[in-house]
Design a binder for these strands. Structure first.
Lengths: 150, 150
DNA sequence: GTATTTGCAAACGCTTTGCCCACGA
DNA sequence: TCGTGGGCAAAGCGTTTGCAAATAC
């Protein structure tokens, strides 16, 4: 599913961003993160590598990376913003309300319907947000899915 | 499209909520609002009727009404929460990024697909959020749509 | 009468910012 | 060297809360 556009650091360079010490560490953490961490969680992970990096630096950097299209910002239902490497195909999110886990999914059919709806209202879609808030089925015959924490 | 379950005040009573002065005014404002005002906007409208009602009272009341299922809370992309009378059929939102206007739409087809996706992942949907962020088409042949402000 | 609700101001959680020093190119 | 980035602490913003006085039932 991932597109491999290179590491976060590489894409930063490609955008002409200065690669400072803190940015390198943050980029590394992002490369290793397959989930949807919030800023505090990122800072926690960054601090394990280099404890002197300030929370505000993480805030400034994620903002920068979102603006550069290197990161995606998501707003689920818990006040804080969560971030995800933009190095992947578009997908939407299913949130397991019992655990907070987030599962990614893709639906070209839904996307087509969205475009049709917008068009019929005289609009062109520039972005969308689709989130399914769910609870596990009391299920017989459990499936195997790749559920990423958070 | 609306279901007419009665006024907000009536539904409050039905839930056994105490009808105080401030709540009556807030309920009245909500009955008259066909858009998606945030708390400050609600407070502004409330203040025109009764200037002594505190902002915190509006916050407390909308929270109460959401919990009672009388109001719906929406989070679009501008930090604050917006509220809408729950006295209507379910719908999703198209946000005009050039004006901030919000258009409501319904798509049973999309909803069915959502349910299928969730089910295939072993989940049951308890809620969802679908928002289309759009810009107007440079259009010949404009349609007539009911576009509610905000 | 008694528990609930209000207004006010202070606190809150997340995020941004001003300042001045440190650092990358 | 020169301009950009970082650390720190303070401010910002939307929202919640503690408290004493006011009010619904």
């Amino acid at each position: 599913m991932d597109r491999d556009l290179g590491s976060v650091a590489e894409r930063c360079r490609a955008q002409g961003l200065r690669m400072t010490g803190p940015r390198r560490v943050i980029a590394e953490v992002l490369d290793r993160s397959v989930d949807h961490p919030d800023v505090e969680e990122l800072h926690r992970r960054v601090s394990e590598i280099e404890p002197r990096i300030a929370l505000s630096t993480v805030y400034r950097t994620v903002r920068l990376l979102v603006e550069a299209g290197i990161l995606e910002r998501h707003l689920f239902n818990d006040g804080r913003a969560r971030y995800e490497n933009a190095d992947h195909e578009h997908h939407d999110h299913l949130i397991d309300m019992t655990t907070g886990n987030v599962i990614e999914f893709r639906s070209p059919e839904i996307e087509e319907l969205q475009a049709k709806i917008a068009e019929s209202l005289g609009y062109r879609i520039t972005g969308h947000r689709l989130q399914l808030f769910c609870v596990p089925m009391k299920d017989r015959g459990r499936r195997r899915t790749v559920t990423k924490r958070d």
